[in-house]
Every structure is written in C-alpha cells, then in structure tokens.
Amino acid sequence: MTATRLDQKLANIKADPSGAKDFIICDAKDSDMGFGLAHAGPVHDAEGRPTGRLKGRIEFLEQIREIVKQDIVDLMLLSVSNLHRLAVQERLFEGSAMGTAIRANDTTDVWAVRHTAYRNTPALPFRTAELRHALPGRNGERGADIGLYAVTFNNDVEADRQALQAFKEFRRECEDLGFSYFLEVFNPNAPKDLSPEAMPFFVNDCIIRCLAAVPDHVRPKFLKVVYNGPKAMEELAGYDPGLVVGVLGGSSGTNS
C-alpha cells in the first residue's frame, strides 16, 4: 500500500481534531460518471470563444496528467475506466504521494446527462463500478487507494430505505476486500415535506443514524458534505471527534 499525503493528513487530524492545521484537497475528475459525453466541457479557441465542439477523453486525460505532475492535490478522484488507463496502463501515479480514488457508485441524482429529468425524482441507489476492478494490478500496478460512496436522503421512506440497503451491501464488499471508502452525503435532491430551515439538520441526523451500527473498521475514512451554514457544520463536526468532516466544493457545495 502506497503511503499518501491523504493518509498522513487524516492521521494528523484524528490525532488532534481541534488543533491540527492540515487541509486536504481532492480534485474531482469523475464527471464522466454523471454528465456523459458533455462532462469535459466545451473547446474554446485562442480568444476564449466556444468552438461548438466538446472536449474528448484524450483532452480530459491530458488535463489530469498535468494536475498530477503539479503534485499539489492530495487525492485524485476518477472513474474506474480512467483510473485503469492512468494508474494501471500508464503507471502515472508510480511513486507519487497523491492518493487515488474511484467513484464507487452513481446514484440517479448524479445522472445529469443531456435531455433528461432523472434528477427531479428522489435519488435511487445504483452502482456501475465493481471494486475488484479498482484493486492493484497483478504486476504491482497501483489501483485505487480509496473509493467514494455517495448517498442522498430525501425524507422518502422507500427511497431512503433502498439507499441504506445498498450502502450496507457496499460496506460488506469493502470489508471482504479490505477496501477503504469515504462517504459523500448530498443534500436532498427531491425532498418530501422538508423546509429549507429543517433540511440541514435532517441531513445531519441521517448521517449519524446511518453510521450508528457501523463499527470503526468499516466506517468511512472521512465525510464529504455540503456546507449548510456554521450551525449545522459545527453540530456535525462536534458530534464525534473521530469522524473527519470535509466540504463539497463547487457552486453546490460552498454557496451558503
């Protein structure tokens, strides 16, 4: 197992939750799992104007290679196909202290492909990835150090029950394979009978409740959540010093 900056920083934070100054940066390059062909964005000309063409996989992979060369981020999050290309076939992360991660599931609320309305209904669990495909290669090629598993609760009893059941099955597979994960909890995408004021605390309660029966060795290495204001964040982060809480980046994660 490769020693990574992520491992060291998490260890520092857990050893001194209130005093550690470590700051973990994850670069999410898993957009192909949600947006399909359009995920890499448009191609612009020399003047910055859209050309009408979308970037392809070759251009997207080159962006990732350039970021890895910079060696600034602590964790690179990829789809399994791109992890296999870069980590196994190219050995891009050979000798690097940068952590490697895969998006381990793709619930329906991340299905953001063009001309669809999937995200307007309560999130349902789904998993394209198979963890065995993310393990180190037979010849010592580096695989994924960790996986990202995402859940979304909507106060919809059947959808939320399905989410919890799928999460349980995932944890069992992680335990069997000795695979680590971190847990991403989105805000409700189609909330049922939840006011905006109640929503952050509903999410906090769902997080703690879904981990209550999970022993330490199968718990997520850290959480990735939306920042819902100081009160909700302080409540969640202060509940259990052993549970490291990270914040989702981008417009949906840091706009409060």
Rank of each mutant, 00 (worst) to 15 (best):
L223G: 01
A28S: 15
N120P: 00
T121S: 11
S180N: 09
S180W: 04
D145S: 03
E234K: 12
R91G: 02
K168W: 10
C26Y: 01
D16Q: 09
D7E: 10
L211Q: 03
G250V: 03
D205I: 00
A159S: 15
L75Y: 02
A38D: 07
V245F: 06
A97T: 07
A40I: 05
E141G: 06
Y118R: 11
R114L: 13
K168P: 00
E197P: 00
Q162K: 15
G95R: 12
R119F: 08
A11C: 00
R132V: 14
A213S: 13
A129F: 05
K9W: 02
R138T: 10
T51I: 09
D32Q: 07
T254I: 08
M76E: 09
F23N: 10
L86F: 05
D27I: 14
P136C: 13
P50M: 11
K55E: 11
G242L: 06
E184D: 05
R49S: 11
R209Y: 04
R91P: 00
D216W: 06
T51N: 09
A117E: 14
V157F: 11
H44A: 07
D109Y: 13
T51M: 10
E158V: 14
L135D: 04
E59K: 09
P230V: 12
N255G: 06
D216L: 12
G253T: 02
D74P: 01
G48D: 09
K21G: 04
L54F: 14
E59N: 04
A198F: 08
L54I: 06
P50L: 10
L10I: 03
D205A: 11
G41W: 07
F222N: 00
V225T: 05
P230N: 12
L6Y: 03
V247Q: 08
S79C: 12
P125W: 04
G147L: 03
S256H: 13
A123W: 01
E59H: 10
Q70S: 08
I102M: 13
V110K: 03
